[in-house]
Design a protein around this nucleic acid. Structure first.
Lengths: 232, 232
DNA sequence: AAGTGGTCTAGACCACTCC
DNA sequence: GAGTGGTCTAGACCACTTA
């Protein structure tokens, strides 16, 4: 060993051995202590490197059993869900939004379950349009839980978009989403200025607080041709 | 302090303070050393906790400047891109696939650039259909770089799907993808047994080796109604 | 029973950046 | 110059799992 190796270099070197099949799928890697000797560093440094590889899904670690190169690498793709304003402004465009609808109503069963509401419970329903340089960008249909987030009742969502307000004012712990393709219906046609039947990227998103009680449920229908970008 | 606190508990506690607005957006957090004193642990333990929060995008760390609660939390969503076989089998269905086309041809300009080919260079072109319980699941159109992956020329992709083979035999360093919604064209109609114009979820994916030279380019068109699931 | 990874400690040095 | 996070060390104990 010439230089003191950092965890990044060790991680890269191990990743190289895995990619080059020097350590093929299923291979049982040397223990941390052995690697520490090989690389001439402390065990903690190796640990950091291998832990990152485990986070990335390249290896699986088990106490006593050791670290194995994964058989079927399940790649974890990441993509960022920014506030739409940032997304638009990063393209160098002017972001605006329009509140189309705001009512307090009884939500459908799915949302009711998510919010843990009784059959007669109500929630805040919003519809809004996000625009980039005055061109429709995404059409938002949202329910907000007034039990977990009562302050939302008095917010003027024509001034602040619900997304931005919630991000700054609602507690947050996690969420789930689904991406699908749907044909534009009449509401979408009006809002997004497209034709009936046009294929739209649709993102449905649920957000939970720390008790896993639903805070908000939102459906975003993006304008025709929109692409979600990601990395692996 | 009663018990010795682990980094998970510290991470949870700090996340709580951020979610509860006790430490609002933009707030300058105490330094690691202070937190170590408060929590009665070593600085490295606090470091681990705060580093994870930084990875999750809740705080931003800068040397000398300290750690700040982020203003516009950009949530990183993750979703898994498994081998389609696993995806189907996890639903308790029988996975099969059919090779529809296999040619060596001159790829379009986009693929040529990705693979760093000359104008007259060729690559392997595949079309395949993935089925779940004999029902069309996804239609795959793929180009494979025969420079980076020459062994692909002699593989029988009617026996092993290209995805599975590449995952096990091609070096890998990274990739990018885009998700969009597209109307079904004639080819998709034939393969996926749908109607012309039906909205389909389409995933385009590029994969690179360690030199950032393209290995494969693939487009997956999922059957009508397919949803991609993710977590945040 | 033994060997693995998971975690923590107390200390150290360095790189960076703000003052 | 001084204070922050980034990293590394050498050692320790523990939890877990397999043999």
């Amino acid at each position: 060993m010439d230089n003191p190796l950092g965890w990044r270099e060790i991680k890269t070197e191990i990743a190289r051995r895995i990619n080059s099949r020097e350590w093929p799928p299923g291979f049982l890697m040397p223990a941390e202590t052995s690697l520490a000797v090989e690389f001439g560093c402390a065990r903690a440094t190796v640990n950091r490197a291998v832990r990152e590889l485990a986070d990335a899904g390249l290896v699986v670690r088990k106490r006593r059993a050791g670290t194995r190169v994964v058989e079927n690498p399940i790649r974890k793709a990441q993509f960022r869900i920014p506030v739409i304003r940032s997304e638009v402004e990063q393209q160098g465009k002017l972001y605006t939004h329009r509140l189309l609808q705001r009512t307090v109503a009884r939500p459908p069963a799915g949302v009711r379950a998510l919010f843990r509401l009784s059959e007669r419970g109500t929630a805040l329903q919003l519809a809004a349009l996000h625009l980039a340089d005055d061109v429709p960008y995404a059409f938002e249909s949202r329910w907000i839980n007034l039990v977990t987030t009562p302050e939302a009742r008095n917010v003027d969502f024509s001034l602040v978009s619900a997304n931005e307000w919630l991000v700054k004012h609602a507690p947050y712990s996690g969420g789930s989403y689904t991406i699908s393709a749907q044909a534009a219906d009449d509401a979408a046609v009006d809002a997004l200025n497209c034709k009936v039947g046009d294929p739209l990227v649709v993102v449905d998103r649920n957000t939970y607080d720390t008790d896993l009680c639903g805070i908000t449920q939102v459906q975003l229908r993006y304008a025709v041709g929109h692409q979600l970008l990601g990395k692996m």
